[in-house]
Computed example of a mutant assay.
Amino acid sequence: MTASAADGLFAGNRTTLAQYEARHFGWSVRDRVATITLNRPERKNPLTFESYAELRDLFRQLAYATDIKAVVFHGAGENFCSGGDVHEIIGPLIGLPMPELLMFTRMTGDLVKAMRHCPQPIIAAVDGVCAGAGAIVAMASDMRYGTARSKLAFLFTRVGLAGCDMGACAILPRIIGQGRASELLFTGRSASGEEGYAWGFYNRLCEPSELVADATKLAADMASGPTFAHGITKKMLHQEWNMGVDEAIEAEAQAQAICMATHDFERAYRAFAAKTRPVFEGD
């Protein structure tokens, strides 16, 4: 296949998102780092039917974006996200029949799937309230920076629901352990920033005034690295949950061989030989 034929074959999938116009949240791109801002600070940045769906679709598009290499997810004001909007989501759900309720819960779960399957590292910058679906979004991110005043709560039992929402029973125990996850999912209580950091939910605690800048710096570091290889790392971290050790070692052998065929691998070697810093281009 010629290069021009390949370009034609893949043209329908490749996309650029720097000029994407978000309707239900803030969106900006700088130096290949995208920033998503939940921007309803007067309500502590709750999610709505529309923002759920748009976020799901955006993260699906990120799998094909050529100009985005890392993502920062945060909330406007002094809070991350208070979960699903009580009046715009929870109220209407009470009147829906079961088939439509299942459509909704599958749609919210699809947001987590899209976040886990997009190749870009996602860094959640969590300040203040991080509750319900907001806690799920932070959980579904690859890394999390918090603050001492962060309040993490999986509130589902408080509204008469199970803690098994949007993958929480699969993902949260892998981050903080089965016992701690069980406590949060059964009780719905808030965990402080210090608890979340000690448990491994947060990679780092930052000063509130520096939180987004610190998360953006981490994202920029990711964006300047071997981004194709980062996507492989994210894929294997997710995929190996369902593998035995032997299968995981074989899968990583195949994944690493793929990365060894990239130009970034060659660039790193030549930079090492020349005693310079490699400049990765993601190919």
Score class of each variant (00 low, 15 high):
Q120I: 06
G179R: 12
P97M: 03
F154Q: 11
A124H: 11
M98I: 09
Y145H: 08
V159I: 15
Q120L: 10
A124G: 10
D110P: 02
L111R: 07
C164W: 00
D110Q: 10
L102H: 05
D165C: 03
R204Q: 11
G188Y: 05
I89T: 05
G77F: 13
G132I: 12
I175A: 00
S209P: 02
M98Q: 04
E207M: 13
M166R: 03
L102K: 04
L96Y: 11
G188A: 04
L152F: 07
I90E: 04
F154D: 08
C130H: 12
G77A: 12
M103A: 00
S150I: 14
P99Q: 05
A170V: 00
G200T: 15
E207V: 06
N203F: 13
G160D: 11
G200C: 03
A125H: 09
M107D: 06
H117M: 12
R180T: 14
G200I: 15
T157L: 06
V137T: 01
I171W: 00
A162C: 07
C206W: 13
D127K: 13
V72Y: 03
G109I: 04
A191D: 10
A170N: 01
V86R: 06
G134R: 11
V126S: 07
D85P: 02
G77L: 14
I89A: 00
G95Q: 03
M115W: 09
A148G: 02
M115T: 08
A124S: 14
A181W: 05
G83V: 07
A76I: 15
M143V: 15
Y202Q: 02
Q120Y: 00
F80P: 06
G109D: 02
P99K: 06
S192K: 13
L101Q: 08
E194M: 08
V129Q: 12
P208V: 12
P208D: 05
E183I: 15
M139V: 15
L184K: 09
C169L: 08
T108C: 01
D142H: 15
V72S: 03
G84S: 00
